[in-house]
């Protein structure tokens, strides 16, 4: 990982004097925080006025969804083909609240996040003990269970395939009115930025370092006196609660949920987008979501067969060295910005 945001790498760079960094690069390091938040999300925020709003919202929600998977894969080393289960948990948590109990969409989001937390806390207690190959498969199984629960077993309350409609049950909210698409987009944007900053912050904490360490060598983590189960469980719950938040936002955005959300056929989407964007990189989820949603949109409009191209792109990205789109672009961008910074100093 050539990523300087990576804590292990950062420590290495701090401790190894031979890695002399130029002044420009060091400046870039301090700038990164602000550049990181302002540039990509700012561009996307502005794009909301140019690109179709639904597209921007889709990209933003998908990038939140992917951030969760990115954390699992890039920091904990877990590959999960079961993200739709947590997405659906969040979406249905929100939907149940808004359909049966209340009308406040913010409370709906809270309900969704809580539902996601409960599901992932329970599942995590069992799953994080498993070997990585079984972990991937078991999560998929959970997705299938959730799907059939929603579609058949809980049909009396979920209305099966017909789904739950609650668009017109949401009441107007003060300050940021969720029922207004543009203000909803702003909310989603704010949530995405906040989460981005949050995961960036996590990377710098001891917990973040422990996550990365369990990925590399769990035994060593145990010998250092950390509880590797607790670390993995916390990371798992954190990530999947984030996925549930994305599901909740999807629910609010569509005003509708259906079991289709937990469809196993979509199980690999977040993993694919994570890899596509660049696993473990901070901008990966955003770049990946943009590329994936954009390509699906564009290709299915032009050719009508997005699977083939997504598959082709995925295999190409993997064979090209697994760094993903952002992982490949990052060094180039860094050099570019670095040159710009040093020029402006002279």
């Amino acid at each position: 990982m050539s990523n300087t945001c990576d804590p292990a790498m950062r420590d290495l760079e701090a401790n190894v004097p031979s890695l002399k960094r130029t002044l420009a690069e060091r400046m870039l390091g301090t700038l990164k925080w602000w550049v990181g938040i302002l540039v990509p999300f700012g561009v996307l925020g502005l794009a909301g006025w140019i690109l179709p709003l639904p597209f921007v919202m889709e990209v933003l929600i998908f990038s939140i969804y992917t951030m969760a998977c990115n954390f699992l894969l890039g920091r904990l080393g877990f590959i999960s083909f079961g993200q739709p289960a947590y997405l659906a948990a969040g979406a249905y948590g929100t939907a149940f609240y808004l359909y049966y109990f209340g009308t406040d969409p913010y409370m709906g989001i809270v309900a969704g996040v809580l539902a996601g937390f409960v599901v992932s806390a329970l599942a995590g207690a069992v799953f994080v003990r498993l070997r990585s190959d079984y972990f991937a498969l078991v999560n998929l199984a959970l997705t299938v269970i959730v799907f059939y629960m929603l579609q058949k077993v809980l049909a009396p309350i979920t209305h099966g395939d017909n789904g739950l409609w609650f668009l017109d049950r949401m009441r107007n909210t003060p300050v940021l009115d969720i029922t207004n698409p543009r203000q909803l987009a702003l909310l989603i944007w704010l949530v995405a930025v906040a989460l981005w900053a949050f995961y960036k912050y996590i990377d710098g904490t001891i917990f973040g370092a422990c996550c990365l360490a369990t990925k590399t060598n769990e035994d060593k983590v145990k010998f250092l006196g950390y509880n590797d189960f607790a670390i993995r469980w916390t990371g798992f719950v954190l990530a999947n609660t984030t996925a549930a938040l994305a599901g909740s936002l999807y629910g609010i955005y569509f005003g509708f949920v259906s079991p289709e959300m937990a469809s196993a056929a979509r199980a690999a989407d977040p993993v694919v987008v994570t890899i596509l964007g660049g696993t473990g990189t901070l901008y990966g989820p955003l770049v990946g979501a943009l590329a994936y949603v954009g390509m699906k949109d564009l290709v299915s409009r032009l050719v009508g067969n997005w699977e083939f191209f997504v598959g082709l792109l995925l295999v190409t990205v993997m064979l090209a060295g697994e760094k993903g789109i952002w992982g490949t672009l990052q060094p180039i961008a860094q050099r570019w910005v670095g040159r710009w910074v040093s020029e402006s100093r002279e």
Binding site: I79, N305, F308, V310, G311
Partner: peptide
């Protein structure tokens, strides 16, 4: 890619799967 880790081959094979499904369509 045989020498690569499990997740790597798993995702690559998934790419082949959906690409192939696209080709079949």
């Amino acid at each position: 890619i045989y020498a690569r880790e499990l997740t790597f081959t798993m995702i690559t094979s998934f790419g082949i799967l959906i690409g192939g499904v696209g080709a079949i369509k």
